[in-house]
């Protein structure tokens, strides 16, 4: 996308235009954070209303899959940051490799998540599906919440992968030393990572027995 570097109306200076694009992205991320904020508030309300049942319900999740996924997303974030740094340093090929690594790790995250959903289905933990059974209504509610929040997060992972893919396939983006497109795609990817960093203690860590 060569027009990425072109000057658009209403700007007079490329540097200022770049600052504006980046600030726009950061504001968008702030608004994304608030979107998930509503879910975290719901989790907090649930936990404050039923402290013991909430903790017990979390014990049915697969801690090790959640932990592995956290490590995977953190590593994927590292790769996105590396892609930004290498593109900025004039190493477009290296930057492309880093982007591909970030994308593959993102796909691995989704794969593990899918495997996790599958095993939850076999254990009858998916509300509304065949064979679902719960110890109590709070566990039912907790699992509903778990699927809504991880599902919404997974949609954002897919969106992030799409952005990273666009950046990876664009030679111009990789050669752009102001890293506008790669930088903004990476920003989005890091935010998806941060949301998971908070979902992890909310869903997996309350009970690790």
């Amino acid at each position: 996308m060569p027009e990425q570097r072109a000057l658009h109306e209403p700007f007079h200076h490329p540097a200022r235009q770049r600052q504006a694009d980046r600030l726009g992205m950061i504001l968008f991320l702030a608004s994304e954070a608030m979107l998930f904020g509503g879910l975290f508030a719901a989790a907090m309300a649930l936990r404050l209303l039923y402290p013991a049942d909430y903790v017990a319900a979390s014990g049915h999740l697969k801690l090790w899959l959640g932990t592995a996924n956290t490590a995977i997303l953190l590593t994927s974030s590292l790769m996105a940051a590396v892609a930004v740094e290498t593109a900025r340093g004039g190493r477009p090929r290296l930057s492309g490799y880093a982007l591909v690594a970030a994308i593959l790790l993102g796909l691995l995250f989704l794969g593990i998540k899918g495997y996790e959903y599958g095993s939850e289905y076999r254990e009858g933990l998916i509300p509304g599906l065949h064979g679902a059974h719960f110890e109590g209504r709070v566990q039912h509610l907790f699992m509903n919440f778990y699927f809504v929040s991880t599902g919404l997060h997974a949609l954002h992972v897919i969106g992030g992968i799409a952005l990273l893919t666009i950046a990876a396939f664009s030679r111009a983006a990789r050669q752009d030393r102001t890293v506008l497109l790669i930088g903004n795609a990476a920003l989005y990817w890091h935010l998806v990572d941060i949301i998971w960093v908070f979902l992890y203690p909310t869903l997996y860590l309350p009970d690790v027995s």
Binding site: S31, E32, G38, L39, A42, P127, G128, H140, V148
Partner: peptide, 25 residues
């Protein structure tokens, strides 16, 4: 606009999900 509207968005999504799938939050 930026900080409040997304909270309405998630709330309305939860209402829609509750009405369609009965998630119960």
């Amino acid at each position: 606009f930026v900080l409040a509207t997304p909270v309405l968005a998630i709330t309305l999504l939860l209402v829609a999900a509750e009405r369609l799938f009965g998630i119960g939050v």
